[in-house]
Write a protein that binds this DNA or RNA. Sequence first.
DNA 1: AATGGTATTTTGCCTGA
DNA 2: TCAGGCGAAATACCATT
Length: 308
Amino acid sequence: MTTTPKATSTDSPSQDRPEAGRDPAACPECGSTDRTQDERRGETVCASCGMVLGEDAIDHGPEWRAFDAQQRSKRARTGPSRTVMRHDRGLGTQIGFDDGQGSSQARAQLSRMRRYHQRATYQPGADRNLADALTEIERLAGALDLPDAVAETAARLFRQAKEADFLHGRSIEATAAAVVYAAARIHETPHRLKHVTEAAKADHESLARTYRHLNQELELPVPILQPTALLASVASALDLPPGVERAARDRIETVDPKAITGKNPASVAAAAIYLEAKEAGEDRTQAQVAETAEVTTVTLRNRLDDLR
DNA sequence: AATGGTATTTTGCCTGA
DNA sequence: TCAGGCGAAATACCATT
């Protein structure tokens, strides 16, 4: 699930609120939401105080300008960007359909070439599997609302898995689901394995097993799930102001790691949110917080003890 | 009604046959 | 692939505010 900063959109923009940090889009230095782009340096700077808010912006546009279609086709030296989401990385050859001139014999030959080429491109076996898997990965990423970058990582992982002969004796579906889950973990886009299972064409059991093996075989760079990664979704689901989330983050970061390691990160996040909501006068009941974090009130209370 | 405590059961993960 | 062990979490039930 992507985070929706709901609170900011409902704030009336006409009202001047100088407190920094209230609005996550505001400049942390002076609170202004105005910003300018310095395209030469690739920086985003605050319009009122000049603080650099973002660096190394990537210019995705072409390095030339075209003023009409003719110029465009002349100046475009490249095809679409290579993508891991196509089984041939978008680099395939296609035989054109322009067979307007030439004998009927030549036309027939072209048509035959096209047909054979088509068959050769989608060769049965390996690439066929890959294409199927990529389709499934895209479908899952869509169903789970995952960003494109995650889907691309998933696709890359699947290629890796294939290279490593991981697929032998395993279902495409389970592996596809496993790489999607792995990619979500790698990108710290919190997603419960349970949710992936629901969207996947594989049962929880085999998915978990496949993921575990995948993790071992490819030695995936999966970071351990930090409670802080879950704060945003919990806070926004409870309609809490951004300040609560920030305070909760601080609290988790300053607590003795020994107190919370090995504990369900969702429960830690829930406890921090509960405490800070109360602190901010935005009381939520334990039951409410526990429910949104998908833990029980008992667990929540245990984490409250750990945090205080 | 919300919070907090406790005993017991369930669950998930790991390990080693 | 299975059993067994383990800690964490859930469940059920209680008391206190």
